[in-house]
């Protein structure tokens, strides 16, 4: 009755040509990305998979930090919802962060990131939760009045239908007006991944073209 394979994480590089076809990465870039993956996935348990602790460690260089957003990003990467990332999930998710990835994919990813309750819209209470978390994580202190006025102003601009919700369409309008809001879903590093991890050539499965 159950498809256990669905939840079983495949280990290893897999087929870089298939991943290259289905992401914005070239075959060489997929192989170089795998070098990064190996580094992160061997930090705590060398099992060829990234768990949440290893992800946090790679992000913050410490596993002691609590972060709402590191959790959110990990959960969005974890498309099989089994608490660990295989290379394929890692590569597909990072593909969205490539400077050449379609802007629609970036808009979609950032919307899901902020739609904490998976309701299909972002509500005021979620925005407040995220602002409070950001301030706490960065050690900044703002009074509740100031936080409320930041959120008021944001909804004034974003909530064009005045229903207290920022749905996907309103999110799209907002980020197209403020492209800086998509800055954190673009990683320039991904353009230079083959030069950052040149050792991939020693493990390459494909001939140079």
């Amino acid at each position: 009755c159950c498809d256990f394979d669905l939840y079983k994480e495949s280990r290893g590089l897999g087929d870089p040509e298939i991943l290259a076809r289905e992401t914005v990465f070239s075959v060489s870039e997929v192989e170089a990305l795998y070098e990064l993956f190996k580094k992160i996935s061997s930090a705590v348990i060398d099992d060829g998979l990234i768990n949440k602790e290893e992800f946090q460690l790679a992000l913050f260089k410490t596993n002691k930090k609590e972060s709402l957003f590191a959790d959110r990003v990990f959960d969005l990467f974890d498309t099989k919802h089994n608490g660990i990332l295989g290379f394929e999930e890692f590569a597909r998710a990072l593909s969205v962060f490539h400077p050449n990835a379609p802007v629609d994919d970036k808009i979609e990813f950032s919307f899901q990131l902020y739609d904490l309750k998976h309701q299909g819209f972002i509500e005021r209470q979620e925005v407040k939760q995220m602002v409070v978390a950001t301030l706490a994580e960065s050690g900044m202190n703002l009074s509740d009045d100031v936080i409320e006025s930041i959120i008021d102003k944001t909804f004034e601009e974003a909530d064009t239908k005045h229903d207290g919700k920022i749905d996907k369409e309103k999110w799209r309008i907002l980020v197209l007006r403020h492209p800086s809001l998509l800055k954190n879903v673009t990683l320039q590093y991904l353009k230079d991944i083959t030069t950052t991890f040149p050792s991939f050539v020693f493990h390459s499965q494909v001939a140079d073209t």
Partner: peptide
């Protein structure tokens, strides 16, 4: 001082959203 920052601009500064640190050695 008037508040001009958009809440999402503030949120996007969160360290947990800065994946570039994945690439740091």
């Amino acid at each position: 001082k008037p508040v001009t920052m958009n809440a999402f601009e503030l949120i996007s500064t969160s360290q947990g959203l800065n994946l570039s640190s994945l690439f740091e050695k």
